[in-house]
Design a protein around this nucleic acid. Structure first.
Lengths: 193, 193
DNA sequence: TCTCCTATCATACGAACGTATGAATGAATC
DNA sequence: GATTCATTCATACGTTCGTATGATAGGAGA
């Protein structure tokens, strides 16, 4: 599983061969077929294993303490935490998106969970007068989630020796994302909160 | 080229075979080798062909009229225009990012151009007092560019029959992105501009 | 000790891959 | 009309792919 996860993330579904995975895992070539039935089944298992903890984390934040702004910030931080702990995960999410096909069930479930929790936070934030009016919760949700995902991924890409993000720490990136999202959503006059 | 572009975008580099591409293009199997030399050379040609117009467009916006806020908005709209006219492009950009390897030269050039132009806009916006203080231009640039990319891609994914973005038009998506970015960067008190 | 049963192993199979090769084609040049 | 030359075409090569198969191993339960 660990090898599959890394190689699928790095090279995509077609690019990661069963041979490469089993060799990396120091297992026999037949191991995938025996334990999972097929390469595709292994892939689905990996995706589910990657996304399930994210769903749990998101649900926990949503049930957590604080007002809407606190919980929004916690949501962004939860994404960062999750993506930092699982360096291969963003690639998976983007591969799913980039493929453009109907997403497989665990992806669909994760999208539904995240969007649902964000919509609740937005609604509460508007009710409390903490947030600006939000015209479309789904679009705003995408805008918010885009921050951790894009920043982590692109940050990795631009963080190289000569890249524009060279030397920028993970903490700085997270604080930037939180500030950016907060600023975009908070109602003018509530900035102190 | 057109077939290669579509199939590379849809299935990734490894997932799109020369046979599939040439069949789709109603060309001979040998056409790729003859005209480009190898599959990899074809891929590089496709990436360059996809990114070059984007670089031109970004440069044009940066040289265009208006204050920093106008040009920032124009930049976001330019991305939407570009991505709408080239439906396969976002996948390419994300595949490059997801692969995590050293980006190939056209990608590197595009990143440099976009980030550079955005940094100029930010600096001018701060100087004019139109923008909030921007702590890190590169991070803020990523946050801005994440909007069109993520919204177009995820919008496609969530726009299905039962998706949360079903029925949301391209125009609404673009207006949302412009508003989101504008709100996140404009200095309080300048909202009327 | 013998019997299961699960797991690992080496190996084989057909299909699909990227690439190479030489013949056919057909418009341009003389 | 003959020649040239850039393309197209059918086909072949060796490799790698996902999967299937039968042998082997080794601990658990009788």
């Amino acid at each position: 599983m660990r090898s599959a996860r890394r190689l699928f993330a790095r090279h995509g579904y077609e690019g990661a061969s069963i041979r490469a995975i089993t060799t990396d895992a120091e297992a026999n070539l037949g191991a995938v077929t025996y334990h999972y039935g097929s390469k595709e089944a292994l892939y689905h298992a990996v995706v589910e294993a990657v996304l399930e903890p994210l769903r749990r984390r998101v649900a926990a934040v949503s049930a957590g303490p604080g007002n809407a702004l606190d919980r929004l910030e916690a949501m962004v931080r939860a994404f960062f935490e999750q993506l930092r702990e699982n360096p291969d995960q963003p690639q998976f999410m983007l591969q799913q998106v980039a493929a453009g096909n109907d997403p497989i069930p665990p992806v669909r479930a994760t999208i539904r969970t995240v969007m649902g929790e964000l919509a609740r936070i937005f609604a509460e934030g508007e009710r409390e007068g903490l947030f600006r009016p939000i015209e479309n919760a789904a679009l705003t949700g995408v805008s918010v989630i885009a921050q951790p995902i894009q920043l982590i991924l692109v940050g990795r890409l631009l963080g190289g020796e000569a890249g524009p993000l060279h030397g920028v720490s993970d903490v700085e990136i997270e604080e930037h994302a939180v500030r950016f999202v907060r600023t975009a959503l908070i109602r003018p006059g509530e900035e102190g909160r």
